[in-house]
Design a protein around this nucleic acid. Sequence first.
DNA 1: AACCAGGACGTGA
DNA 2: TCACGTCATGGT
Length: 234
Amino acid sequence: MIDTLYDLLLKYYGPRGWWPISLSNPLPRHPYHVGDYTFPKNDAQRLEIALGAILTQNTAWKNVTQALADLSQGGLFSVSALLDTDLTPLGQAIRKAGYFNQKANYIKAFVEFLQQHPFGKLAEMSVSEARAKLLTVKGIGFETADCILLYALGQTVFVVDAYSKRFLRHLGWISPQATYAQVQSLFQQALPLDLPCYQEYHALLVEHGKGYYSKKPYGLGDPFLKLAQLKSKC
DNA sequence: AACCAGGACGTGA
DNA sequence: TCACGTCATGGT
C-alpha cells in the first residue's frame, strides 16, 4: 500500500528533484535537480540544505528562498560568517522567513553545533547517533533533523510532515493521534532502503499536500483517496 | 481580509 | 505525556 502509493504519486507528479539548492548550485539556475541524486556535492550545499530546513519550519518555501538570498547577499552564507554575526543582524537577514528572532537563535545554535560535529563527522556516525546529536540542538526537532539526515547527509531516513499525516489520516491508514515515530516507521517498514525513493516520496507528499491538504476541508477532491482505496483491495 | 505556511519550544496540568 | 499558546513575515 505504502509502496504502491509511492508509485502512483510518482507517476502523477513526476520526480521533484528535492532538496532544492538555489545558491550553491552553479550550473542549472533551476534549484531542483530532477534525476540527479548525487547532491549535495559539498559542505556549502549541505549548509544550504540545513539552513533551509530550519528556515522553512511552518513557513512557505518561497519566503525561505528570499531569506537565503538575503543571507547570501549579506555575506552570511558560511559557517564562519554565521559564527561571527550577532543575533540582531542575523535576524534581519532572515526576516522574510518569519519567526526571525527564534530562527536566528536556532541557526546560531546549529553552526556552533557544526563546530563540534561537522558534516563529515556526522556522516561517519551511525544514523541513530547522528540523529540523536542533531536533536540536542535547540530548534532542531524530528522533522528538521530528518530533513538534514535525508537530504544533506544522504541517510535513508523518512521525513514525516503535517501534510503526510493529514493525507494518511484521510486514507484511513493512521489514527488521528499517531505520533511522528509511528508514521515514520509505517513508511520505513514498508519501503525498501532506497535513498532516492525516500527523497522523492517526502517531496511528493508535500506536493500533494499543498494541493489537497492545506485548507479545510482537507482532502476535498483528492483523486488518490479513491485510487489508493481501490488498490488496497487487491 | 482572513487564513495559511515543508515546526519547535515552553508551559501547565 | 500532552494539549495549548507563542513565534512573524509574506502569499493567496
